[in-house]
Design a protein around this nucleic acid. Structure first.
Lengths: 239, 239
DNA sequence: CGCGGCTTTGATGTTCATCAAGTAAAGTGG
DNA sequence: CCACTTTACTTGATGAACATCAAAGCCGCG
């Protein structure tokens, strides 16, 4: 468990490229210019490397994180020993909004699965902005709603399917949502796949092998190529 | 499936008892008086009877509902044939906030499990209030965050437990969270219990019988009394 | 009174976790 | 850089947990 290293921080006060920022364009679309400038001044850009923990469950909420680039996993420890991965998230996904407004500590951990660029804002300043600009708050409200809906729907889907269906789902998720490519390098271990879709590591491996033998996918190590989308979709649908 | 009957609506323009309303005291604590009055004017109180559908999945979002009194179930149809109950909710639980700000249609159905009193506000007026009073929006933000956190945690707990653990959990939930009593009348059918904790009706019944034979609970029909909280908690913990 | 939905119990088979054991890969310290 | 340890991956065998199927009793309702 590598902890977030101070050395990996890299602040760029010189150039502010917030104009093209997704955060700005989506959450805070129609804010007055001075608010944008304020956001921009508050912002610290940090770079996290694959494997770095961005935030840890139970740490005090002192910053709001916006994932600008990269891929992260959102996870949670349950019953003090079992780890669950809730979802893998890309920049648009706003998982960092999930519970920060009602708890003083983070409810979930965020870990970088690729090298990530993250915008970090002091939480108290964000709260100040929320009070000042209702549009801003409203944008957050929408995002928070959407984020949890996606999570909930995913849970229901996963749990209503048998193991083959779950593996099919996650493979399609990698291909379509995360990488937009029929071949990709799985960013997590087999054990983590298991934690993500609620099954054992052994069965993850077994079913991946089955799919390989049925010529649905090709595997070499972490590299997977989807060969037969039709079959995979059928397996994912039926459950 | 009884549909929401117009006859069951009952508007009380005469007396406005919003002063003691939980919604007001929690979400909109420090609003100026004129905002409270506005909320009060907008409000329609409606009464739903046990079994009434308060809102249906996929209906357009035109109202914001606040459960003032009673008990409801939040449910969702998946794959067009399988029904899932997400959670049972009491007035404080704000499940009506779940997805209304990012979709034009309701994402979940709400059904009255007891006779319910519900405050209904026109959605466009709520949005107006949100724009006008940032505190109001911020209160919502906190509640939305909390609501989804509760749901997510519950999902993880349920799915990490075996069937006996799940039944134990739900029994404790009834006793402690919903009724605050060691004996209660289960407000849903065995099949609905199954839909709530992801198992089959038969096994719900079987395990309830086991618990009865092990002198953990007493059952007569829908009436359940918890006899041995210790054992039940052990079963719920271990999973 | 008969029908359909809810409840209950039993028998059966499938799905899945667990255990075990072995290989490969990756990190660690001398 | 090599021996060593640990972690990840893989396959097979076994049994437990759970869903499914079947059948019957119960109750409310038209």
């Amino acid at each position: 468990m590598e902890k977030f290293q101070l050395k990996s921080i890299h602040t760029n006060d010189d150039k502010c490229n917030c104009d093209e920022c997704i955060l700005r364009s989506i959450v805070i679309s129609n804010l007055p210019p001075e608010a944008n400038e304020r956001m921009c001044r508050l912002k610290q850009e940090k770079v996290f490397q694959r494997g770095d923990i961005i935030v840890s469950e139970n740490e005090p909420v002192e910053h709001f994180f916006y994932l600008k680039k990269g891929l992260i996993k959102l996870s949670k420890l349950l019953d003090n020993h079992k780890n669950y991965i809730l979802i893998l998230a890309r920049p648009h996904d706003y998982v960092s909004l999930l519970s920060i407004f009602h708890k003083k500590t983070y409810n979930y951990s965020m870990t970088a699965l690729e090298d990530c660029e993250v915008c970090v804002f002091p939480m108290d300043e964000i709260q100040q902005l929320l009070i000042t600009y209702p549009d801003f708050t409203f944008g957050f409200l929408r995002k928070v709603n959407k984020t949890s809906d996606v999570l909930i729907e995913r849970f229901l889907m996963i749990n209503s399917r048998n193991l083959r269906g779950r593996i099919a789902m996650i493979l399609l998720e990698f291909s379509e949502r995360i990488y937009q490519s029929k071949s990709f390098e799985v960013p997590i271990s087999r054990r983590e796949i298991a934690e993500l879709i609620g099954m054992t590591t052994e069965n993850v491996i077994r079913i991946l092998s089955e799919f390989k033998n049925e010529n649905i996918i090709k595997i070499s190590g972490k590299e997977i190529e989807i060969v037969d989308f039709e079959k995979l979709r059928l397996i994912a649908e039926h459950g």
